[in-house]
């Protein structure tokens, strides 16, 4: 049973306490769409579109580390261009989308879901090792 259902079933029904935890279907879909939109843009070499889907701090960090504009820098990154969504986790305004051969982290902003890290590989007992990420 997902956390989201726990929240609705246990807290709302029993205690009537609003919790805001877990993910609604719409939020999962929004995060998935942003993740695949980002990898699609990279696959098509569309740096501008990919950068439009990056979180502000991630974009800033990418330009700083590569010493060039985001449009150019993002297409130089060797981020796997996976397109099949295998797993989506959404908690509050944060999400992880696992694609066929890539894992992305996203955050929800007023302008929609934005990628905070991409090209991420899990490491035991440590944060993911990501090719593109914010500071």
């Amino acid at each position: 049973m997902s956390i989201s259902r726990w929240c609705r079933g246990v807290l709302v029904a029993v205690l009537a306490v609003t919790t805001g935890c877990g993910a609604s279907g719409g939020r999962s879909e929004g995060a998935s769409a942003a993740a695949t939109g980002f990898t699609d843009a990279l696959r098509q070499g569309d740096g501008r579109q990919a950068c439009a889907l990056l979180a502000p701090r991630t974009l800033e960090e990418l330009e700083k580390s590569e010493q060039t504009s985001c449009d150019e820098a993002v297409t130089q990154e060797q981020v796997p261009a996976g397109d099949v969504v295998r797993e989506v986790d959404v908690y509050g305004d944060q999400a992880r989308v696992v694609l066929g051969d890539d894992t992305l982290f996203l955050a929800h902003f007023s302008s929609g879901w934005k990628v905070t890290a991409a090209g991420c590989v899990p490491r035991p007992e440590q944060p993911y090792d990501c090719q593109v990420k914010g500071g």
């Binding site: 935890c21 986790d89 908690y91 944060q94 944060p127 993911y128 990501c130």
Partner: peptide, 16 residues
């Protein structure tokens, strides 16, 4: 339940 959600939100923010 709420602790799991809050913890996981923090985990995701820290790329975990």
């Amino acid at each position: 339940v709420t602790g799991t959600a809050a913890y996981n939100e923090q985990q995701l923010r820290g790329l975990q």
